[in-house]
Amino acid sequence: MSAVTLDDVTVELGGRPVVDGIDLEVAPGEWLALIGPNGGGKTTLLRAIARLVSFAGSIALEGRPTATMRRAELSRLLAVVPQEPSTPPWLTVGEYVLLGRTPHLGALAKEGRRDREAAARALARLDLLAYGDRLLGTLSGGEKQRAVVARALAQEARIVLLDEPTAALDIGHQQQALDLLDVLRAESGLTLVSAMHDLTLAAQYADRMVLLDRGRVVADGFPRDVLTEEAIARHYGAAADIVSIDGRIAVVPRRSLVRNT
């Protein structure tokens, strides 16, 4: 059974379809990268999957339609790492990661031992155990990002949506973060759906790429099949060469003095 199934999903914002009749299946354990130009519909599609925006059509997680799930039930299946997570500076890393246990708790309940263990496991996986009592306000950008991922892991959801997980990181931390996600995916059998702007990085890590333009799927397949010079020119309006180094694909922008439209 697919981890995520989208059937004719449309999202209208301000009377304009931002996501336009998308059908998509994501296999369990797969890492799917959503790529495409700004305004292509990547973030909105992620928000629809997480039921953060209303949509037409149907979305199912592990075969069950999200529309009929309770919020907490949905959140036990699916975690979200937002592009700009809010990290209240007065919370400790431990407290913040424990917030990931919310869907497992009753409305007014406190965290129990199981929750603290789940949070500790998540911290340990992200090498943050020693940071448990540090305030979020004292962390660097890369450490904060790890805390956010730890919170998503503490949620113990099998599907994780990531919106531009590396946007705020330097190249070293980008690589670390994505390597880590890859390891977590392998160890825990997570299904990852990530929106990414960096095509070269996306091609390195994702099994599969879906190119969205104006709310529609315009290409879907292995990174090397989706990332073509022609597709990048047409959908991004960019001139770039696609080069392959030992089977790894890189997108290399070409500087043009005269811009032809």
């Binding site: 953060l52 919020r71 949905l74 979200v80 809010s86 917030l99 919310t102 949620q155």
Partner: peptide, 12 residues
């Protein structure tokens, strides 16, 4: 205090 979207995606 994390904001509406994040609170929702945490099941609230």
């Amino acid at each position: 205090s994390l904001g509406d979207d994040e609170a929702r995606s945490l099941g609230v």
